[in-house]
Write a protein that binds this DNA or RNA. Structure first.
Lengths: 142, 142
DNA sequence: AAACTATGTAGTAACCATTATAAATAGAAA
DNA sequence: TTTCTATTTATAATGGTTACTACATAGTTT
């Protein structure tokens, strides 16, 4: 996620205001790289502003998603949609044991290698997810 | 998805029975390559057996997922989890305009290229999703 | 500064996909 | 047939998300 100042500028461009609640939610989002759910963001926000409503967190996260500042990631059915708050393109590894989504380094592969169906399409983003069992869970299994 | 006979064998191995309801649901699943939701499968099932309950469809799809016969794909928030019933490894293109998930051809990229975080992990499957706007929607936009 | 307007927030209720529960049913084994 | 177990059905409960309403706030104009 970009610095708060840049996001504030993007908000103003859309006619939106940088309220204290939005500022705090954006700060929490830009700090958290653990692919948090709305509820996890909400609980972090409450530590600083205990009177913020869940609705405001939902609204702000929806606005940030519309601005392209954050991105939804596969939620795997545990307690809600998860959000990726990292601006840099990167990939994921999902451990089916501990159900954690890890970030991977490295550049995305080129879409040209994936057949002719993409001819004439506008590519905006690509996301690789690798599934398996992480080293920690493999050790526990023994 | 594999032929019904092979799936029946996999069921028996787990001590599960191939009931008429399960057989029909599996047939619908193996026919449908459009990444259907549970409700879409349910409505197809009703055409042949109108008295099958939604719960049975949920249960059977959960069992098939546990057996690895089908796989959840990113649902993007429209009406439920979508399932991929294709046995062959392949990738997806998601059009953010018409919200359709297209299949792509081509081989998966090698996980070795994605950094050291995968050292010692057991890789089982990988899935690339390309995001953008499909040729049809691009034309309409003009 | 006061009044006006538009936007944002909070709280509650509604929504809908999914899961849990309990009763009815079917099929296999004895 | 009787019993036992797995399955199906119907309904209720759950939980994340959205809709709605009233109130508060910020920015602007006079």
């Amino acid at each position: 996620m970009r610095p708060v100042e840049e996001i504030a500028a993007a908000l103003r461009e859309k006619g939106l205001k940088l309220t204290p609640q939005r500022r705090l939610i954006i700060e929490v989002l830009s700090r958290d790289r653990s692919h948090p759910t709305v509820d996890e963001v909400y609980r972090q926000v409450l530590r600083t502003m205990p009177e913020v409503s869940r609705t405001t967190v939902y609204n702000t996260i929806r606005e940030m998603t519309a601005l392209g500042e954050i991105v939804e990631v596969q939620d795997y059915g545990d307690g809600g949609i998860r959000y990726d708050t990292s601006a840099e393109a990167h990939h994921h590894f999902f451990c089916r044991e501990c159900r954690t989504l890890f970030d991977l380094d490295g550049d995305p592969p080129l879409p040209e290698r994936y057949g002719g169906a993409l001819e004439g399409a506008a590519i905006e983003r690509q996301q690789l997810t690798v599934y398996g069992v992480c080293p920690g869970c493999l050790k526990k299994a023994r």
